[in-house]
Computed example of a mutant assay.
Amino acid sequence: MPPYDPSAFPPFAVTVDLVVLTVRSHSLCTLVVRRGETPFRGRWALPGGFVRADEDLGAAAARELAEETGLRAHDPGAPHPVPDHGAHLEQLATYGAPERDPRMRVVSVAHLALAPDLPAPRPGGDANSARWAPVEELLDQARAAGDDSPDALAFDHAQILSDGVERARSKIEYSSLATAFCPPEFTVGELRRVYEAVWGVSLDPRNFHRKVTGTPGFLVPTGGTTTRQGGRPAQLFRAGGATLLNPPMLRPEV
């Protein structure tokens, strides 16, 4: 191997940032934390942190998710999410603009995390408070505020959030990702309300039922019913082995 001088290359750090999405009160919400340290002290930001020297990216994302929110990522190869507020976790995109972090050159590998209706988060790390915020409220605020405004998200987190929301909105058209927002057993009506919250539209209940039950193995009846939504007992389902919705359910034009 030819001689190699690491000092010939500029050093930089790697972080993970998390777009954590859930549906609360029929609204798509994301987790934001108020930064307790510089830079951007006091500004809202996505949870995340630096990757340690002895961990890979997926492990770093799962660790930050647990440390800053109390959520546990489930195994992406498992057929169903783990109970007790488990979260679906997948890599979203990489962000490496030279000036994105005023401290030093930092490359961030963002991850998307999805979970059912979740309790109040617990702050940790360099965050001194945390909250669930409606996605549209944050994105509208980011579009209206300048980068230097105290109302803007820290770093380039508005762009990361926008990309994460678009990933979720597009992916539920053809995949089983929407079931990650549901408990292990759910009704078709509850699943429909997830689609409505993520897309921000109203869907016809009959057409929706026909589409999601028309793909063999997409939803599997559990044999149980529930009245938690009021009215007559509704059939309970769980996510099946089919991960693709065929034909896909394209989101309506808004």
Rank of each mutant, 00 (worst) to 15 (best):
V82G: 14
L28N: 02
E64K: 12
P121S: 03
R52D: 04
A144E: 14
G124S: 09
S202T: 11
R35C: 02
A62M: 07
M249V: 05
S7C: 10
H26T: 10
W132H: 03
N207C: 09
E90G: 15
P150N: 07
A180P: 14
G224C: 01
P10T: 04
A158C: 09
G231Q: 09
G125T: 11
A144L: 10
F9I: 07
G224H: 02
V23Y: 02
G223L: 00
A13L: 01
H26W: 13
Q235D: 13
S175L: 03
D75I: 05
D75M: 12
G42Q: 00
A120D: 04
H88R: 06
F12N: 03
P116N: 05
V194E: 08
L203R: 07
V51E: 00
V109F: 14
R193L: 13
A59D: 12
E196F: 07
G86H: 03
A113M: 00
E68R: 10
E99A: 06
L138E: 02
A78R: 15
D151I: 11
A61E: 06
P102V: 04
T222W: 00
D17T: 11
R238Y: 07
A87N: 09
A144M: 15
P248T: 02
G36F: 00
G231Y: 06
P3G: 12
P6D: 02
A97V: 10
R105V: 05
V109Y: 06
Q229M: 15
I172H: 04
D84I: 10
V14N: 08
V33S: 07
A152L: 11
P39A: 04
T227Y: 02
L71K: 09
H88L: 15
P216R: 05
H88I: 05
E185K: 11
G240F: 04
P216A: 03
Y195F: 04
V82H: 13
N246L: 10
E137M: 14
E99I: 04
G224R: 10
D117Q: 12
M249Y: 04
P10E: 08
A113I: 01
A110H: 03
